[in-house]
Design a protein around this nucleic acid. Structure first.
Lengths: 126, 126
DNA sequence: TATAATAATAGTAACAATTATCATTATTGA
DNA sequence: TCAATAATGATAATTGTTACTATTATTATA
């Protein structure tokens, strides 16, 4: 179901998600919020994250293991550290024309694209 | 553990995976192989797919839901149909220099990259 | 070619991530 | 203020995957 009524829990989830830039999982968000809202439920976090990502208000990112969420809905790229599994933003300029070009190599229509770099972050290199 | 000894099950898994180009999940492979090898175990399929993708012999692809596997280990791109969740190959030419360029936008080293187009396949459009 | 070492298997249990259920609570519009 | 119902918290159920263990298959060597 789509969002219709307002809720404190959803506000808190959005606030937390937009303040941080570490692309937390549902459980990481839940644990952080649980301190301020002690009777928040993990199911509520999942339900809201799914509604919001269905809306296009936030992004859901699947890279193996638990899904990550990104409060920045504008398309941008990511890097996954294969050591610590953390997900980082990559400010590589958006490839504006890649979807148009890719149409020639696809049977269907394209609505978006993702690029994920895999590597090792500085924290894990040292 | 890495592959050392030979096994019929692993051969059958590789054969099946390389013959088809629909990026099956572990369970889809299992069901297809179960006909020829009635006492194949799902755990065996998972174990081998993981060993082979750790090797770099095959690719594991996470796009939400169950992981998909690709017998083509050469880097190439994919399209995910948001309707039927099927994964297609995209023969878009490899962006050879993107990893080198991306280094400037990343704190760490890059070892590979993936591009996934999201869209609707022809089967789902009609 | 027999044998010993051990990797790989089948079958099953356990686990992790996510979704569904449902009685209760909160929001909203009349 | 009240009725309608969306959203919640708590928990059960489901799904995808990994771990465990006794047995079987592979392989190197005597």
């Amino acid at each position: 179901m789509a969002v219709t009524k307002h809720s404190k829990q959803r506000d808190a989830i959005m606030d937390e998600l937009c303040q941080r830039h570490d692309h937390p999982t549902a459980e990481e968000l839940y644990l952080a919020l649980k301190m301020k809202m002690p009777n928040l439920s993990l199911g509520t976090v999942y339900r809201n994250l799914n509604m919001l990502s269905d809306d296009g208000t936030i992004q859901k990112i699947s890279v193996g293991g638990a899904d990550h969420f990104d409060g920045n809905a504008n398309n941008h790229y990511h890097m996954l550290c294969s050591e610590c599994k953390r997900l980082y933003d990559v400010t590589y300029p958006l490839l504006e024309d890649i979807e148009k070009k890719a149409v020639n190599f696809v049977d269907g229509k394209i609505t978006s694209h993702t690029i994920t770099f895999i590597g090792v972050c500085n924290g894990c290199l040292h």
